[in-house]
Design a protein around this nucleic acid. Structure first.
Lengths: 203, 203
DNA sequence: GATTATTGGATAGCTTCACTATCTAAATTA
DNA sequence: TAATTTAGATAGTGAAGCTATCCAATAATC
């Protein structure tokens, strides 16, 4: 199919597709001449993935990394996760003290070397941000956070399909990035229910 | 204290402080003459909150809403949450079908009217995004998501301090916004642990 | 009291990001 | 042959979040 059809099919404007091609998010089509190329279903699928990632809040640079990981996946699941996380996690100026983050890691079931230092740094940065705002998370709430994310992460990893590597890669990489907005939205919803439960005073 | 000291104290450049004043994030100081004003500790504290929110990924417009809520809080905790959520949640072009989101709401313990329609729409948008990418969350994983966010939300709401209204407001409004990066970071860390647990094949 | 530094306020500029528009020559289609 | 479409290059746009520059008026210092 040609550019115009690809655009119609995926619901993405032609100039935007050209932009994604330039940025290396979308692979070139098959050239049929000096000024013509053909695109296939894989381009449609990839465009859908790109749009989903972008509107999940992933930056174009992040999308490029995610797609690169999909195209050339590491063999170990842990490395796969690492790559997906690196693409999605906020960029980090380093040098943050990791002590508090390490404590939380231990409570999660830390085993030395089980987790990329960058993930620890992400946690440390989030804690630091809370600190600098003068906000403290009550111990019980922190315990619930750990409990909650453990439940979530265990199920996610248990759900990794093992039949074909392609499926596993897709699941891990996209699941990591695309589930974030869902989790945050579910949390907000759950908070409202919990609030009504505890403070049933509203009209 | 004067502008320069405020800047030094809070670690925020003078032009940025002026910008926040212009944008109405920071209240004006007490004028001592036509071209002078004094700032107090409340300005330092507020600056710290602003920076924390900004680097938690909240937009300046969102920060303005959060601070407005802190300054003039609704009386009902539910409304407080609503305001905080509205400030933080992604802006929504509406018109998304809410059916699937409603189903999840029921599984969370939905009671009619317990949740702002906008929160339902947030969930619906996230689901739609996943759909359009052709990504499906396995039922067991979705169940774990609901379980996890319920655990988290219950603890958060249980932790709302009831001694003074100011504290409650601060807790709800800032906790909502500032805990998001922490939760995502903890999830990533937990995923890596879970991956090592299930796939211990790495070196 | 004279001089130097600082401030509030206004306005304009910068950088990044994610697109969007325009142009050209070649190629396809009618 | 004439009209349309395309790849590729280059440039422009608009929002967001600062950052820089001026100015006249005030404060601080000598």
């Amino acid at each position: 199919m040609r550019m115009a059809e690809l655009s119609a099919e995926a619901g993405v404007p032609v100039p935007t597709i050209k932009y994604y091609l330039r940025e290396g998010l979308l692979p070139q089509g098959v050239r049929t001449s000096a000024t013509q190329a053909r695109y296939g279903d894989s381009h449609i699928r990839r465009l859908r993935v790109i749009r989903a990632l972008v509107d999940a809040g992933v930056s174009v640079a992040g999308v490029r990394k995610v797609l690169a990981t999909l195209d050339e996946p590491p063999h170990e699941v842990a490395d796969l996760l690492g790559a997906a996380h690196a693409a999605v996690a906020p960029r980090g100026d380093d040098g943050i003290p990791l002590a508090d983050a390490r404590l939380l890691a231990e409570r999660l079931g830390f085993r030395p070397g089980a987790c990329e230092p960058e993930r620890l740094a992400d946690v440390a940065r989030a804690l630091d941000s809370l600190n600098r705002a003068g906000f403290e998370i009550p111990p019980d709430v922190m315990t619930a956070y750990l409990e909650g994310v453990r439940t979530i992460a265990r199920a996610e990893i248990a759900g990794v399909p093992v039949d074909t590597p392609e499926e596993a890669v897709r699941y891990v990489v996209l699941g990591t990035a695309l589930a974030e907005p869902l989790l945050l939205a579910l949390r907000r919803m759950a908070e409202q229910f919990a609030a009504v439960e505890r403070f049933p005073s509203d009209t």
